[in-house]
Design a protein around this nucleic acid. Structure first.
Length: 320
DNA sequence: ATGGTTTTTACTGCGTC
DNA sequence: GACGCGGTAAAAACCAT
């Protein structure tokens, strides 16, 4: 976790340095100055012209088809990324005036009203497509980072689509909702990932994920029961490289704990981690608390507390 | 916002290799 | 002496109200 964070930071620094690098003259190392008027970049020390002709290079000189021409053309309104369609869709003004500012007749007004309505429908439909495309890309990216199977991704997609259809998006970020959808899907599929793990691969902060998740679950009426501690066991077991035996015992411990009602209110992940530790102990396979803590992201203290409770519960279950 | 519960952090003592 | 483990107190995070 800290690994990725520090790596990101150094990445940023190196790109920043590279950028600064480019602002020095390759000949003498002096500062480069942009001469806006002449469209040149000039070294302030030796006068070397590093780049010229920035302002107008003339039109692209060939295009083989219409699409390419569109792409290469330098004319037209500037595009913006702040709008879903980059501001390129048709806009119909709300005033019933023609291009000269004269009022429209009633027949024309009705016509414009109809046009407005349909234009708006197509436009929002379009925006949903784009929205969806981006969200699904995010979901896919995060899912592979977390090693979640395709069926989880599909579930997540479905959840996201529903959220979109029910207009849950306004006021929330696409990524936040996408992340929440994935989190929910993983839990529903019985292969949960903790909020921490999720937020590590998401571009969204943990609190926002949690908030959005709660909201989405409530609004869509998703039935998600508290995560079953047992569902974490296989992952911990394989991360620690311990035997099947340990896994079996861990499940067993969790079962008796559940019967005894030990586990209400406690973090399922903590329970699972403790069960795996206790099971390893019972099976005489060496695993330290810190190792378990490492793979489960649960503090050693919590593991200690839980696994005592687990063992007690087990003894009680055997005694009477 | 508040209070109760759980988890984490930080520290200390004990036994073993 | 380092390591694994256990316990504790205080801080932080979480949750329901």
């Amino acid at each position: 976790m800290t690994d990725t964070r520090t790596r990101n930071r150094t990445d940023e620094r190196t790109t920043a340095e590279e950028e600064r690098e480019e602002h020095h003259c390759p000949e003498c190392g002096g500062n480069l100055v942009a001469d806006e008027e002449r469209g040149e970049t000039v070294c302030s020390e030796c006068g070397l012209v590093v780049d010229e002709g920035q302002i107008d290079r003339g039109p692209e000189w060939r295009a083989f088809d219409a699409a390419e021409k569109d792409e290469k053309s330098r004319v037209g309104a500037p595009t913006t990324n702040t709008m879903h369609d980059k501001g390129l869709s048709t806009n119909i003004g709300w005033q019933d005036k023609d291009a000269y500012g004269n009022s429209l007749g009633s027949r024309q007004r009705e016509k414009m009203q109809r046009l407005r309505k349909w234009n708006e429908r197509f436009r929002t439909r379009d925006s949903k497509e784009r929205n969806l495309k981006q969200a699904l890309g995010e979901i896919d990216r995060m899912a592979s980072a977390l090693g979640l199977p395709t069926n989880v991704r599909e579930t997540a997609s479905v959840i996201y689509r529903r959220a979109l259809d029910e207009d849950l998006l306004p006021g929330r970020s696409i990524e936040g909702v996408a992340t929440s959808a994935l989190y929910a899907a993983a839990r529903q599929a019985g292969t949960p990932r903790s909020l921490d793990e999720i937020s590590n691969v998401s571009r969204v902060e943990k609190d926002e994920i949690a908030r959005t998740y709660r909201y989405v679950v409530r609004e869509l009426g998703l039935e998600i029961r508290p995560a079953d501690p047992k569902s974490y066991v296989p992952r911990f077991v394989s991360d620690l490289g311990v035997s099947e035996e340990v896994e079996r015992r861990a499940r067993d411990l969790l079962d008796t704990a559940t019967e005894k009602g030990i586990h209400s209110g406690k973090s399922p992940v903590g329970l699972a981690a403790a069960a795996v530790y206790a099971a390893a102990l019972l099976s005489n396979e060496k695993v330290t608390q810190s190792e378990v803590s490492e793979v489960s992201d649960i503090s050693e203290v919590t593991i200690r507390n839980r696994y005592h409770e687990l063992l007690e519960a087990k003894e009680d279950a055997l005694a009477p």
